[in-house]
Design a protein around this nucleic acid. Structure first.
Length: 813
RNA sequence: GCGGAUGUGGUGGAAUUGGUAGACACGCCAGACUUAGGAUCUGGUGCCUAACGGUGUGGAGGUUCGAGUCCUCUCAUCCGCACCA
């Protein structure tokens, strides 16, 4: 009977469903593996990137299940977000209906791939039950001061009508729709991720070697820790008077306290309160005030593209060490969001300060020796730096910081590039932020017993404004504290909040889902995730947020886990014609069509064979044919199997070809452990199985065939589960799936060993040597075989690499 | 500019970690069978050469008996961050 994937796959998928074959055990005593592929957004259809992601995860889950581990391999839906609202705007479908019907469709698609997911732990993040617990966490974070509301300058995407977190701005544009982001002053909710910055940074060390170094580096840079000195510049009396006595001075931050004697001016961001005061009170020339306003309206990205630009503010500060008067400017390169929006400028030793000083003719004072030209940013000895002259600058950094601290003039400070996470979104399809604005009590969290604060179903989504804000009744409520009339918060949570704790939700036994968000005992047993698999695009966003949430929830007492994802594999993209598959480019391959034509096993085999998982995968239709051919061949060879169990073979009695076939089979077996547990180079394991099958084909010993198939089906089951299970079931009643198969070392013992003979570093010939031959005997054979190349030569060195080669180093006589 | 990677046949990719470069697969070439097919099977296939042989892992050096692998320099491509004081 020929290979018919549709029948075989339907049969086993049905059986797995009936047997509930992939549910983890509730027992917490067995060794466990938690294998997690990033959950999908229910966009409507599966794409090849999904297939790759889940094929990798499923292979690992099935492998460990076969090794008798208690395996958690769950799936769910990252279900809130803009696309659902866009569907509502475009096609008039309700986001909820759109989302859940997409989930139904995609679940079927996943089923046809034969993925071994737990069915009982599936959920969508838009399920009210999930929202309920998430809102509780949010309130607890508020109570700990980790969540706060503040009005500040935010990134605003006009096309999505919502605020974006810093991490969601890519090159000044919205991560989702790619429209330029504007700056806007508005209130929002923030999570104090900076409080965890140090731990997030330090714990990256634990992930070294287990996460791709690239991701670790990206996170490190994103957190951007730097140490330096913060000190106050005091305004001159005259300047204080000019500012109406509202300001005494301002704080600046520097990582180069060693250059403090080189300060020749100071610069403020256009948004700095002092700059603002001067502009608003007409203390600057009208023209200058206009220029400053126009800079303030530009995004950081726009500003970065401009030339350095600035204006003197007509005020001065006093140098804390020299007492000199320092002029104060405003400049477009000073960022409001970092270091307080004010800097000391040392043009001699900072490129930006130098460029600015040169443009505006400001003085430049060298205080560090070294280099010929200015600016000089390297190390050297201090000069013209008062009592610190003649000190090396690294030493001076510490000395000056200490001195400033002793004098009460400043303090050593740590700064981060990381900004607090803005989590409020002015959209409908998200988890409502569970707070109430009460005219008497202020911002009040909803009572736990009233959670979830659910979304209203009757909503009009037009794309204009915030649908919850515009809803006729939903926001009117009573204050949970005083009972008076109040207004419900209409912002919803960033969808990244949901994906920050879903790994704990899966781990929690579904029987407890109503009652608790995370069960501590379950969480501590299952987490961290032993292997997490997903795209590199989440290197910062999701992976940083999830790490942060893990630490916060730990500190709220929900579990004892420090890091959510023990090991991370970032899969490469699936390309066609050298470009990422996308509808707009018209270069997509539809997984459904692929499965319909070849079956799921072929799809999975090809995708794991075509490239190592970390690399980009170039789609190739005819290579898919090749994968299909291999499965057909494997299926066809079931007729070669005569026994129904692991055979006993007398290796020495076998012919040469049969011996070689066994070597190939056992090499594949050896390789499998390393591949499944360490390297994930499935392509090499599949190649080894192909070699083994080719070698088996060259011989005809029925026992060797039986043994070969017994082992190969075991190795391939995680990759091509349907056909492997079908064959294993028919041939061996699935006995060969029972556990690890032992490697028989005797197979690798050879009758004779092939040595390569190299002369002068070049391969010249080969010799067959008896395994018991001594080094002298091997050398003698090699010299005899290589005689032709040794003529007129003198051997200067003889090297024998056991079981491999002989190298005779020569020189002319 | 800073940081991280990657460079191997016509293509995707191997190489037990310093030991026969190109496994496996795709493609291509030749042949077999034939119910003529986008099926199956057999053989070949890095490059130069009629052959002997030479040469070959982006490039140039170096270490070594031996280098795709280690060291130095260099080029190219991709990705991330980007005025962070």
């Amino acid at each position: 009977m020929s290979y018919t994937p549709s029948e075989i796959e339907a049969k086993w998928q049905k059986q797995w469903e009936e047997e509930q074959a992939f549910e983890p055990s509730d027992s917490h005593t067995e060794p466990k593996k938690y294998i997690l592929s990033m959950f999908p957004f229910p966009s409507g259809r599966l794409h090849m990137g999904h297939v790759r992601n889940y094929a990798i995860g499923d292979a690992l889950a099935r492998y460990y299940r076969k090794q008798q581990f208690n395996v958690l391999h769950p799936i769910g839906w990252d279900a809130f977000g803009m696309p659902a609202e866009n569907a509502a705007i475009k096609h008039g479908r309700h986001p909820k209906e759109w989302t859940y019907s997409n989930i139904d469709y995609m679940r079927k698609e996943l089923n046809t791939l034969g993925l071994s997911f737990s069915k009982t732990r599936e959920f969508a993040t838009c399920d009210p039950l999930y929202t309920k617990h998430e809102q509780k966490f949010i309130i607890e974070m508020f109570e700990k001061g980790l969540l706060y509301r503040e009005s500040t300058t935010v990134n605003w995407c006009e096309s999505c009508h919502t605020v974006l977190a810093n991490e969601q701005v890519e090159e000044g544009c919205c991560w989702r729709c790619d429209n330029p982001v504007q700056l806007k002053e508005m209130p929002g909710y923030y999570l104090d991720i900076i409080r965890y910055a140090d731990e997030l940074l330090e714990d990256l060390a634990q992930l070294e070697g287990k996460w791709p170094s690239q991701v670790i580096t990206m996170q490190r840079n994103w957190i951007g820790k730097s140490q330096g000195l913060a000190f106050d510049f005091e305004l001159t009396e005259e300047s204080k008077a000019k500012l109406g006595g509202k300001f005494e001075g301002y704080e600046v931050f520097t990582t180069r306290p060693d250059t403090i004697y080189g300060v020749t001016y100071s610069a403020l961001a256009p948004e700095h309160p002092i700059t603002k005061y001067l502009v608003e009170h007409g203390l600057l020339e009208a023209e200058v005030a206009e220029k400053i306003k126009s800079i303030a309206n530009m995004s950081e990205v726009e500003r970065a593209k401009q030339d350095k630009e600035g204006y003197p503010l007509g005020i001065s500060v006093i140098h804390p060490l020299t007492g000199e008067e320092i002029p104060v400017w405003t400049a477009n390169f000073v960022l409001a969001s970092y270091g307080g929006g004010a800097v000391m400028a040392v043009p001699a030793h900072d490129e930006r300060d130098f460029e600015f000083a040169t443009k505006y003719g400001l003085p430049i004072k060298r205080v560090i020796e070294g280099g010929e030209a200015l600016p000089y940013t390297g190390n050297g000895t201090l000069i013209d730096s008062g009592r610190f002259s003649c000190v090396g600058n690294e030493e001076a950094k510490i000395a000056i910081t200490n001195y400033m601290e002793e004098e009460g003039k400043g303090k050593g400070t740590t700064n981060y590039k990381l900004r607090n996470w803005g989590v409020s979104r002015q959209r409908y399809w998200g988890a409502p932020i569970p707070f109430v604005h009460c005219p008497n009590c202020g911002l009040v969290p909803e009572k736990f017993e009233n959670l979830p604060v659910a979304l209203p179903d009757d909503v009009e989504i037009t794309g204009e404004g915030n649908p919850l804000e515009n809803h006729p009744t939903w926001k009117y409520c009573h204050c949970p504290k005083c009972g008076g009339e109040a207004i419900r918060e209409t912002d919803t949570l960033d969808t990244f909040v949901q994906s920050s704790w879903y790994q704990f939700r899966y781990a929690t036994n579904p029987k407890k889902w109503e009652e608790v968000g995370i069960d501590k005992e379950d969480a501590d047993y299952w987490l961290g995730v032993d292997q997490y698999i997903g795209g590199i695009e989440h290197a910062i966003l999701h992976l940083l947020y999830a790490r942060f949430f893990t630490k916060v929830l730990r500190d709220l007492g929900y579990h004892d886990v420090d890091e959510p994802f023990e090991r991370l594999l970032t899969q490469g993209m699936v390309l066609k014609d050298g470009a990422k598959m996308s509808k707009s480019k018209g270069n997509t391959v539809d997984p459904d069509a692929l499965v319909a034509k070849y079956g799921a096993d072929t799809a999975r085999l090809f995708i794991l064979f075509a490239a190592p998982p970390q690399k980009e995968l170039e789609w190739n239709d005819s290579a898919v044919d090749g994968a299909f051919r291999f499965i057909k061949k494997l299926y066809d060879r079931k007729s070669k199997v005569t026994g129904n169990t692991f055979p006993d073979i007398d290796h020495s009695a076998l012919g040469k070809e049969s011996k070689l076939a066994r070597v190939k089979v056992y090499e594949a077996l050896q390789k499998s452990t390393e591949v499944y547990e360490k390297s994930f180079a499935f392509n090499t394991l599949i190649a080894a199985c192909m070699e083994a099958l080719n070698a088996l084909d060259k011989q005809d010993n029925a026992d060797v065939w039986t043994e070969g198939m017994y082992i190969m089906l075991n190795l391939l089951e995680p990759i091509i589960p349907h056909v492997a299970t079908e064959l294993s079931d028919t041939l061996f009643a699935r006995e060969n799936f029972g556990g690890k198969i032992e490697v028989k070392e005797e197979v690798f013992v050879q009758d004779s060993i092939l040595y390569v003979v190299m002369i002068g570093g070049k391969k010249r010939t080969e010799i067959e040597v008896d395994p018991s031959a001594t080094q002298e005997e091997i050398l003698a054979l090699a010299k005899e075989a290589g005689e032709k190349w040794l003529q007129g030569m003198q051997i200067v060195k003889e090297i024998v690499v056991p079981n491999k080669l002989v190298n005779l180093a020569v020189k002319p006589k």
